[in-house]
Write a protein that binds this DNA or RNA. Structure first.
Lengths: 144, 144
DNA sequence: TTAAGTGCAAAGGCTTTGCAGCATA
DNA sequence: TATGCTGCAAAGCCTTTGCACTTAA
């Protein structure tokens, strides 16, 4: 006879509950750039009973499992996004708020330089660039 | 009240009150790496009546005047430090919490590269490196 | 007198936690 | 049964704000 598992999937040794599936789906679909409250707002549309506590608890779990990265881009909000194979960083437009991504080999180079010259073993570079995006440079007025 | 004296100094068009002098002195003496509560704790030793609200209000003012930079180095705390002529960034040891500073021309180089290739006008690079400091590499045990 | 700064306490906003109920293995 | 997840509400923490009072100009 076959084992009837309600939770067919595992993350680490933890079950993937319906709530976790939902949250991961949303993160996948939006390709990140969501804070906890936005994630909650989107989640509640598909599961009206899900709670904000569940969102926070699972975001923390996802982080611990290395599935999700948290990025603090301003004073208040953290953005959460699924970890992807290629490391990337964000540019934040201080005029319209748009968040876009970039990568550069100079970041690894910087880490190496610091490791060499400062004897500091770099585990992670926390970085984003603030400035003015292409669209706002053309039309230098407020937010959208 | 305690201040029975004119305000001989001005910051912008704002008077430098006794509280503001005190806060700036502490920031100068500690060369930054203080969060708001630590600043408050140090301040209250010299002026037992100063309030946390005054600390926050003045930190915000100092930021607006460009005297002080705020750095978020972890999930919770912001560090405040007097702005100095040379731009610098921080290395944070994830083992002992020690904060040290570094600079590198690669950061300006990175900004230029992004400006060129992504048509994004960089106003500010928000950066710190997390990792393991020299001392903890030698003695890889917990916090101090 | 008027505009601005301060202290105190209360309120905000985001995040975590305690607890009871449920589901899974 | 034992473990762990969830929803709800309450609590925590950092920060801001309302208000009355004081100070400097």
């Amino acid at each position: 006879m076959r084992i009837n598992r309600k939770y067919p999937l595992k993350m680490g040794n933890r079950p993937v509950t319906a709530q976790r599936q939902l949250l991961l789906s949303i993160l996948r679909e939006t390709r990140g750039h969501l804070d906890a409250k936005e994630l909650y707002r989107k989640a509640i549309q598909r599961d009206p009973h899900i709670s904000l506590a569940t969102v926070y608890r699972n975001l923390r779990l996802f982080k611990e499992l290395g599935l999700v990265d948290e990025r603090r881009l301003d004073e208040v909000h953290s953005l959460y996004e699924l970890r992807r194979p290629t490391e990337h960083y964000h540019m934040v437009c201080t005029s319209c708020g748009r968040v876009t991504e970039f990568t550069s080999p100079l970041i690894a180079e910087l880490s190496s330089e610091v490791e060499r010259s400062r004897e500091f073993e770099v585990e992670r570079a926390v970085l984003h660039l603030e400035g003015c995006c292409r669209k706002c440079k053309r039309r230098p007025r407020g937010r959208e």
